[in-house]
Structure formats: C-alpha cells, structure tokens
Amino acid sequence: MATPLLEIENLHAGVCDKEIIKGFNLTINEGEVHAIMGPNGAGKSTLSNVLCGKAGYEVTAGSVRFKGKDLLRMSPEERAREGVFLCMQYPVEIPGVPTTAFLKHSVNAVRKHHNLLELDTMEFIKMVREEGKKLGIDGEMIKRPLNVGFSGGEKKRLETLQMSILKPALSILDEADSGLDIDALKVVAEGVNGLRDGQRSMLVITHYQRLLNYVVPDFVHVYADGRIVKSGTKELALELEEKGYAEFVREK
C-alpha cells in the first residue's frame, strides 16, 4: 500500500500550559478530501496552526507524518515547500509589499526546493495572469500591497490563487467561507474544485455545512473538545446542519 499523504497519530498540543488538541488521529490519502466540522472553540484553528508550524503552539505528544516525513520537525517554510498549504481565515496585511512580488518570492522558493528552475518575471506574470483569470482576479488587484485594503472576498480569492499556483499536495482550508457572500463563495469553491485532480488532497475545516455544498468531501469528521468524535461521509455534514453540535459537545 502506498504511504498515506498525512498521518496524524495521537496528537496533543496547546498554548502555554493549556491543552487544546487532546489525542487527535487522522489519515489522509492522496486525492482525498476530508472535512473537519466542529463547534466554535473546539480548537479547529489550533489544529491548522499546529500542522503548519505557527510559533506559540506546543506539541506535547503524538506524531504527524507528511509523505512519510516527520512534519513537526520542519520549519513553517519547509512544510510549505514540501506541499502543505494553509488557506487562512484572516490573511494578514503586509503594507508596502506588492502582491506580485510576494507571489514570485513564494513560487520560486517552492520551485527551488523541488529543484526546479526559478521562473523569470515574464514567465511568472504569464502564469499568474492565466490562473488569476479563472478566479476573476484582475491585474490591478495583484499590483496592490499584499492584502492591504482587500475586501473579504478579494482576500479569499487571493488565497485560492496562491493555492493554484503553488500546487500543494495538501491544502488546509481554514473557515474558507467566512466573510464571503454567495457569489464570492462560488468563485472560491470553483477554484478549489479546479484543483481536485485525484492526486491533491484537502482538509476543509469549517463550522458550517454551507461550503461543503460546493466542495463536496469524501469524508466528514466531527471535531469536538480536541479530538474527532465521529467520522462518516458527506451525509454526516447534513445531519450536523440539522441537529447542530449539541449532541457531541454533551458527549464529553
């Protein structure tokens, strides 16, 4: 059997002395789309931050293997270069840094890691234009400083654009639908679906079922109090939408 793309075993992690993730297990194979649904405060964002190596979180037990390698020992940029992409809920603004310049740095850092030639400016611009067009991103938007003054929809579209040009093996979508109206949601979902090619995998983290109407998962997990409490297929999401999380929160 092929090595799973991502294997999380008995993960315990938290902030300062407070444990937030309490024995988390999950395996994602190549090409699979998993959804993690959970109530507010379940530690969903902690999970995505821990997987991407954000400072300030402490892993106290367990292991995470990505393509068979120990993910937890890598720096955040190494994880990104290996192919873990976090589509952020609130992408940060970086004043004065043009979006294109940032994207070029990012793309070339990843290419270099994979021993590919760095793109020159012309090649790069061409690629960004093509990919951008699919997401309704015009040239004007990416000339502006990174995320500065972008609307919620623009920020999410830019995240999706980065996902499509970096071609990560695993995309983690953290509340990708928050702050989006229905039209913007559709554009983002289309972009995400366009990346589903049977090889790339996704982990969709969300509170609401709404996004899953557009990005249909292969598996759905209910996440409460730091661990997965129930797993199923896409029908589970609908069930949750109907009944809410109360049952699972009570279970603890």
Partner: peptide, 20 residues
C-alpha cells in the same frame, strides 16, 4: 508566519516586510 506558510524563509521574509 504568513510568508513562511507560503514557503518564504525567515530571513527573506524579514527583508520583504522591511522593504515594504
């Protein structure tokens, strides 16, 4: 973190942010 998450190393990220 945002820069690093996109594969940009720390030193390069600092210089990007400072130039901005």
């Amino acid at each position: 973190f945002y820069c690093q998450q996109r594969g940009i190393g720390e030193e390069e990220a600092v210089s990007l942010i400072v130039n901005g």
